[in-house]
C-alpha cells in the first residue's frame, strides 16, 4: 500500500491505575534496597518517571507496614527511611523494611506480552541469536506466577536488508539501493540510515535521503539491490529528530470524500485526518481521507472492494474506476 500515513498512537498514556501504582511500588522497594543510598533523580531516571512521582511513592512506602502481632503498627512493623537525607538532600535510604525484599514475579499476561514481542523480534540480528531468545523466553516463563497466556507472533523482517543496514550504522556509512516509489518510479537512493520501524508485517527504514535532502521513510519490500557504500554518513540518529509519524502530512495533500462500511473504518484510520467530519449515510459512514496523490488512493480503494466507495472529487472517483477497469481488461 502506498504512502500510508501512520499516525503515532494517541498519546493517551492512561492515568496510572491502582494496579500500575502498586506494581511500581513493588518494584521500587527492592531496587532501593539494592542501592543503599540513591538520589531521587537517579531513581527517576532508572524507572523513567518524574522526580515528583518518586518522592510521592517514597513517602507512601515510608508510611507502609504490616499491622503486626498486636494489629497496632508498631515501629518494627513499618518501613522507615532516612528522613533527614530525604527532605534536605533529596536522597533515599531505606533504614528498615518489612515483607518485601525481592523483585516481584510477572503475571501470566505480562510474561505473554514480552514473549510474543520477542518472537516478533526474533529475526533482528545482533541482539541475540535464536538460542538466546529461546533461553530468554524460558526464563520469562519461569519468572511468571502462572503459565503465560498463549500468544504467538510469527514472521519478522528481511534479515538481509536488516543486516546491511546494521553494518552501515556500525561503520557510519551510507546505504545505496534502488527504490520504487508508489508512483511507479524507480530511483537510486543514497541514505544515512537512522532507525528501523515496523508495523505488524511491514518494515520500514527511516533515514536521511541524499537525493531529496530530507528525512524519508522507505518500505523494505520496495527496496532492491542494497549495498553499503564507502561514503560516510552526514547525519546520525543522535542529532536528527525523527517525528512520531512515519509519513508527514503535507500541504499538497489531496482530500477525498468516501463512504465506507463501519467495519473497515479502522483500516482507513491512518488516512483520516484529525477532526475530519463524519456522518452516516444509510449503513455507510461518510468521511474524508487525505492522500498525497491518486496513485496511492486507487490502490487502496481497489484493495477494499465493495466496502469503500469514493464519492468526490470526480477526478478521484474516475482514477479508481479506470484503475479497476484496466485490471479487468487483462482478463477480457
Amino acid at each position: 500500500m502506498a504512502d500510508k500515513r501512520h499516525r503515532a498512537p494517541a498519546r493517551s498514556v492512561p492515568a496510572p491505575q491502582a494496579r500500575d501504582k502498586l506494581a511500581f511500588l513493588l518494584a521500587l522497594v527492592p531496587w532501593l534496597l539494592e542501592h543503599d543510598r540513591v538520589t531521587v533523580q537517579e531513581a527517576a531516571a532508572h524507572f523513567g518517571v518524574t522526580e515528583d512521582e518518586i518522592r510521592t511513592s517514597v513517602s507512601l512506602v515510608a508510611m507502609s507496614g504490616v499491622p503486626g502481632a498486636t494489629a497496632t503498627y508498631q515501629h518494627d512493623d513499618l518501613f522507615d527511611i532516612d528522613w533527614d537525607a530525604f527532605e534536605s538532600d533529596d536522597e533515599i535510604a531505606i533504614t528498615q523494611h518489612v515483607a518485601i525484599d525481592d523483585a516481584p514475579r510477572l503475571s501470566a499476561r505480562e510474561a505473554a506480552a514480552l514473549i510474543a514481542g520477542l518472537q516478533y523480534l526474533q529475526a533482528l540480528p545482533g541482539n541475540a541469536d535464536r538460542a538466546g531468545i529461546r533461553t530468554l523466553i524460558e526464563k520469562l516463563s519461569r519468572g511468571a506466577s502462572a503459565t503465560p497466556s498463549q500468544l504467538a507472533v510469527s514472521g519478522g523482517p528481511d534479515g538481509e536488508v536488516l543486516g546491511l543496514v546494521q553494518r552501515a550504522v556500525a561503520e557510519g556509512r551510507r546505504v545505496r539501493f534502488a527504490y520504487l516509489n508508489s508512483r511507479g518510479e524507480r530511483e537510486e537512493r543514497d541514505v544515512d540510515p537512522l532507525r528501523v520501524e515496523s508495523i505488524d508485517a511491514d518494515w520500514y527504514l527511516r533515514g536521511w535521503d541524499h537525493l531529496r535532502q530530507a528525512l524519508r521513510t522507505f518500505r523494505f519490500d520496495r527496496m532492491s539491490d542494497m549495498v553499503v557504500t564507502d561514503d560516510p554518513i552526514e547525519h546520525d540518529a543522535s542529532e536528527m529528530h525523527l517525528p512520531d509519524t512515519l509519513f508527514e502530512p503535507s500541504a499538497e495533500d489531496l482530500e477525498v470524500t468516501i463512504e465506507a462500511s463501519p467495519e473497515v473504518i479502522g483500516l482507513l484510520a491512518d488516512y483520516i485526518p484529525d477532526g475530519a467530519l463524519t456522518s452516516e449515510v444509510g449503513d455507510r459512514i461518510r468521511t474524508t481521507l487525505r492522500v498525497s496523490h491518486y496513485h496511492g488512493l486507487k490502490r487502496l480503494i481497489a484493495g477494499m472492494p465493495g466496502t469503500v466507495r469514493v464519492v468526490a472529487p470526480e477526478q478521484a472517483r474516475r482514477a479508481v474506476a479506470e484503475w479497476a477497469a484496466a485490471g479487468l481488461a487483462r482478463y477480457a
Binding site: 518494584a27 516481584p104 510477572l106 505480562e110 514480552l114
Partner: peptide, 15 residues
C-alpha cells in the same frame, strides 16, 4: 501496552 509497561517496571527492580 499496560501489561508490557508493568512487566518492564517489575524488571527494573533488578537494577
Amino acid at each position: 501496552s499496560a501489561e508490557s509497561r508493568r512487566a518492564l517496571v517489575k524488571l527494573r527492580a533488578l537494577g
